[in-house]
Amino acid sequence: MHIADGVIAAPVIAGATIVSVVGLGLGLRALTPERIPVVAVLSATFFVASLIHITLGPSSVHLIFNGLVGVLLGWAAFPAMFVGLLLQSVLFGFGGVTVLGVNLFNIALPGLMCGLAARPVIARFGPSGAAAAGAVAGAAAVGLTAMLVALSLGLSGREFIPAAKLTVLAHLPVMAIEGAVTAAAVLLIKRVRPDMLASSRPVRATAPVS
């Protein structure tokens, strides 16, 4: 899902990086001091959860959870996923340094959009309605990310178009899996701790610092 260095053309990198920086700036405004701990702990949770691999035929897929991140964190999804990608690329040395902006754009933007769209529905309806909205958000976020990855490849050169098509195809089963898992996660949270999903505003631990 994430792209390595040396593949994407410079204009694509520039465009996506600019949008990502704007997204980070807006996300930073949502990251008030009293929300930093909850965003940090949840982004660490998503990092750990993305190491869950599900065996699928001869290969295995790992979950991305960008839709669920968007649902729980709202605009803070941008800084949270930036931290995740930064840790992955720089501290663990997986690469993707020069395309950090592209990867953030491809993963965080769909997550944020699906999260903002699904959150009011999840807050308003009962557990089963919330689970359905979660399923749609989880699947759509992965689908949109696959399309954006394909778009970044396709815009970088005609020769990447077959690889771009293959990326979208390969993510169809991931969409289904991600949708099912996100639905179950939302269902559990809605039953056990509905206040995490309650207001139209994303989660915040207790009252603000006075």
């Binding site: 949840l42 949770t45 179950a184 559990l188």
Partner: peptide, 20 residues
């Protein structure tokens, strides 16, 4: 898939409480 979803949901709930 439902069990893994519950696992992730439970992790998130525990993390939320921890963050408070």
């Amino acid at each position: 898939l439902r069990s893994i979803g519950y696992l992730v949901g439970m992790l998130l709930v525990r993390s939320f409480d921890r963050s408070e």
